[in-house]
Nucleic acid binder design. Structure first.
Lengths: 348, 348
DNA sequence: GAAAGTCACGAAAACGTTTTCGTGTTAAGA
DNA sequence: TCTTAACACGAAAACGTTTTCGTGACTTTC
């Protein structure tokens, strides 16, 4: 078990100085061809690679970016990571991940752990708890220390940084308009409580679409789920709620849900009540997850282009890292990724 | 945008030496109480945190572990990461990820990128291409340089290291036995080509279960899919193959598939051919993915306990890192995670 | 009052790089 | 032959820590 070889060892072995070795390997004009060849051959033989940590310390940059997300076992987030990793690698960066598990304190701890030199910048999506507490000090502190942040999906105007978001509003509006054009007269919305910014925007899109078609919104058609519960553990409760929605609105003929699970459950309930999808009820979900594609009937969804979000976030961050940022003219951009309506079998 | 404060700055500010500051912060007995208080108060005020990179260089360990996986947008792998992250964080480690995209060269490049000091050890699952090429030099070279590796799921006996695997053989056997006990007389196997070790073992489990019940295996009941194609892009071709399987075996009443997608497609084909699941055909898949749970009918599967695999892999790696490993008595263990049959609606 | 011991702190090395600057040798020019 | 320039290389600092060892000032002891 031989350790990795260092410049010092090469220098000692070849009886030259460390500086000479370093220069020879970087093909400096200061070094004679003879010496260069000798050193390079030796280095190749022993498979020399500069030590990243030493370089990081010297250069005061790690070429590593940190991702903090609520959870990784989630199609949307893993797609985003995939996108980030793609461009990060292309541009010579590594990716280090931290999971907040939707917890504020874990988010803070994770950020502190990484902010002490391990990474050059953050790409993150806030935890639900952070959104609820509205405590953003850790983001702002990180930024005043000169570490850039790019936020995606779950953002908040109180934090001034680059952002990549989905046009939730228009995506929702497009979906609901589609339902209306397809003849739906009574369209339900299944959404989350309002503290998740994303849910709020989608709700607004739903309302706006109705308004544009002179369809007055009805409170009893809007179901707000309390997402503080982990839904995987409460599927039955959720299903009951949705069933209630159907039963108290017998004329229901369209459902727009702000995520895949809600949409799938709506289809399940419909089937259970003897309704056919899409002939009796049409359903549209949000998120281009794997469930929608393989459901029966397959689910029409608003696609968020998660991978593209990740790619864009990485571009923004690395651009900022590599610009000789003139601390003064800090100008932040918000990139909006447009959604697409992917039509499948759950709509006519 | 003030940079993070360093020992040197504190020392200058307080007019003491760097050593004194360092010792004061670590509560050394060498330092007087007065000085300690002064230094600690100052450090707290300026929110001093030691620089990780400098520590890594000094200690020659980064407290970071590297994960290399074929892809992250995959329920199994993200669950594994989740498990790794859980115990890594608990034990004071960070996690850095690299994706091979099932490509040999990306696997090699990623490993080289991380092996130069960025991490202390690897947790990885090999790419399909690596399995096909049977070229394992990068693993062995990494290990001779003193960097431990823990492999999971896709392993190979040629590489001597700690391993965490699923009992694919018994999992498959259990599943097929279940089908037999449920009255199936003609059970198909949908699997992959043999170079993926995992697929081979599951096939063997299938055969053994049949044999134990004196049911001679029939070649026409075994469908081997060429997985070098990305299946998401070839769903229709796949579906055709499965349809053919059904049509050339009219008495088919049971299907065991080595993954979720194949199982779901089998159910889809069955429905299309007017067969009811589970009354006419019973289906079991492998992997405790999210699709199985939300399919209609929900799919009975062999659960792999991916998260547990990740946790165990992390335990193994960190244990090895923290043992003063006496290079000599290298002894590697292979931990087998037992599978469970999760019964849902696709079986009787 | 001198020897010994304690206390509180600082200097410096080390981890592995890169880079600036200095320096000794040789060759060219006057 | 002496000055100068080019050449090839080495010393040292710097990145931010921790830790070993040395040292000056006091205090204690007989």
């Amino acid at each position: 078990m031989k350790r990795k070889i260092t410049l010092k060892q090469i220098a000692r072995e070849l009886d030259v100085s460390i500086s000479t070795v370093s220069k020879a390997l970087r093909n400096s004009a200061e070094i004679s061809d003879d010496t260069k060849q000798k050193v390079q051959a030796f280095a190749k033989l022993y498979n020399y690679r500069p030590n990243n940590i030493a370089l990081s310390l010297k250069n005061r940059r790690t070429n590593t970016i940190g991702i903090i997300i609520p959870e990784i076992v989630h199609h949307f987030f893993s797609k985003v990571i995939s996108g980030v990793e793609l461009v990060a690698n292309k541009r010579g960066y590594n990716v280090i991940i931290g999971l907040s598990n939707e917890s504020f304190s874990k988010e803070v701890i994770n950020m502190e752990m990484l902010a002490n030199g391990s990474i050059d910048g953050f790409i993150l999506s806030m935890s639900k708890e952070t959104l609820k507490l509205q405590d953003y000090h850790h983001f702002n502190e990180t930024m005043t220390q000169g570490m850039p942040i790019v936020m995606f999906d779950r953002v908040v105007s109180e934090v001034k940084c680059d952002k990549v978001i989905v046009d939730d509003f228009n995506g929702a509006k497009k979906a609901v308009k589609k339902l209306i054009e397809n003849g739906c007269k009574s369209i339900a919305l299944i959404t989350t409580k309002d503290y998740v910014s994303v849910g709020k925007l989608r709700t607004q899109g739903y309302l706006e679409a109705l308004e544009e078609h002179q369809m007055p919104p009805k409170a009893e058609l809007i179901l707000k789920i309390d997402e503080s519960l982990d839904y995987e553990a409460h599927l039955e409760a959720l299903e009951k709620e949705i069933e209630q929605l159907f039963q108290s609105n017998p004329k229901l003929d369209g459902v727009f849900a702000v995520n895949e699970i809600y949409a799938l459950l709506a289809m399940k309930v419909a089937r259970k009540l003897g309704l056919d999808v899409p002939n009796d009820v049409q359903v549209i979900g949000f998120t281009d997850g794997v469930l929608s594609k393989h459901a029966t009937p397959s689910l029409t969804t608003v696609s968020q282009h998660a991978q593209q979000m990740g790619e864009k976030a990485a571009e923004l961050l690395i651009d900022k890292l590599e610009s000789e940022f003139n601390s003064a003219d800090e100008v932040f951009q918000t990139v909006v990724i447009t959604t697409d309506l992917v039509e499948r079998e759950s709509t006519k």
